[in-house]
């Protein structure tokens, strides 16, 4: 039986792992390769590396980092952050990434999703959505949560899947950094109505939150960062807890 996935997320800036609390106040949480290999050893099912560096040197540094990760990590990993063209994706996949994630660039040019899916296959195209609940619905935010759009997260997710996105990585900005649990309603809505896997992100604070998002929101995977980086939750203990609660996980 296909298992639910636990995915640590490593935000990368200038080659180091950082994590923004509520997308701000970044703290250094270590070397990405070391941390990635450690998570793989502990039983993480996948890794996500989000590059938040914004310099011209970025692309070259990132592809070199991706190659180093691919050499050392024996589980699948996704690379995202500032990817805006077929060529960007080609470089990253050639460097050893298994999947890439697109966010703002895909929203601004939805045709990019079609192009990427056609060129590389849906299985390696993850659509990342940052969303905030306000005025009665969940809206898409761009540029790392700084720019609001009038588009509903569900509508954009559905369009992107129709265009060829193979997975949705959904981050609730309301929940991110709060440690109060994942956004169950929007995660469930996407998971129930789209026929691609949904990765829930934002809000994990304890192990029961993971059970909630898998059992009550039908998430296919759950992503978290700081609670893993600062060892508030260790992956082996989390897997054991999920198993005992009847969630199908890999050991």
């Amino acid at each position: 039986m296909l298992t639910k996935r636990i995915i640590p997320c490593l935000d990368i800036k200038d080659g180091r792992t950082v994590k923004g609390i509520n997308f701000e106040n970044i703290r250094d949480a270590g070397d990405p390769i070391e941390l990635g290999a450690l998570y793989a050893e502990q039983g993480a099912d996948e890794l996500v590396f989000l590059d938040i560096t914004a310099t011209n040197e970025r692309r070259k540094t990132l592809s070199e980092l991706v190659t180093r990760i691919a050499r050392h990590v024996n589980i699948p990993f996704t690379v995202g952050g500032g990817i805006s063209s077929v060529e960007d994706v080609n470089v990253l996949l050639q460097s050893g990434a298994d999947k890439i994630s697109v966010n703002t660039s895909a929203f601004k040019d939805p045709g990019l999703v079609d192009k990427l899916a056609r060129e590389f296959g849906s299985q390696c195209i993850v659509l990342a959505i940052d969303t905030r609940f306000e005025e009665g619905d969940w809206y898409v935010y761009l540029n790392g949560g700084r720019v609001k759009t009038p588009v509903k997260a569900f509508d954009w997710a559905k369009e992107a899947v129709d265009r060829g996105a193979g997975e949705i990585l959904l981050t609730s900005m309301n929940n991110d950094g709060t440690k109060q649990g994942f956004a169950l309603d929007i995660t469930a809505q996407l998971s129930q109505h789209l026929n691609v896997p949904v990765i829930a992100s934002g809000g994990a604070g304890n192990m029961a939150h993971f059970v909630d998002v898998f059992e009550n929101a039908q998430a296919d995977a759950a992503l978290a960062a700081s609670i893993f980086h600062y060892k508030e939750i260790e992956i082996p203990a989390l897997k054991t807890f999920l198993y005992e609660k009847g969630v199908n996980v890999r050991f």
């Binding site: 039986m1 296909l2 298992t3 996935r5 099912d45 849906s122 129930q192 026929n195 896997p197 296919d220």
Partner: peptide, 17 residues
């Protein structure tokens, strides 16, 4: 083939035994 619409996510992505 999904027996019921949206029951089976395609592609299968993840760990299976």
């Amino acid at each position: 083939q999904s027996p019921v619409e949206n029951l089976l996510k395609i592609p299968q992505i993840g760990w299976n035994n």
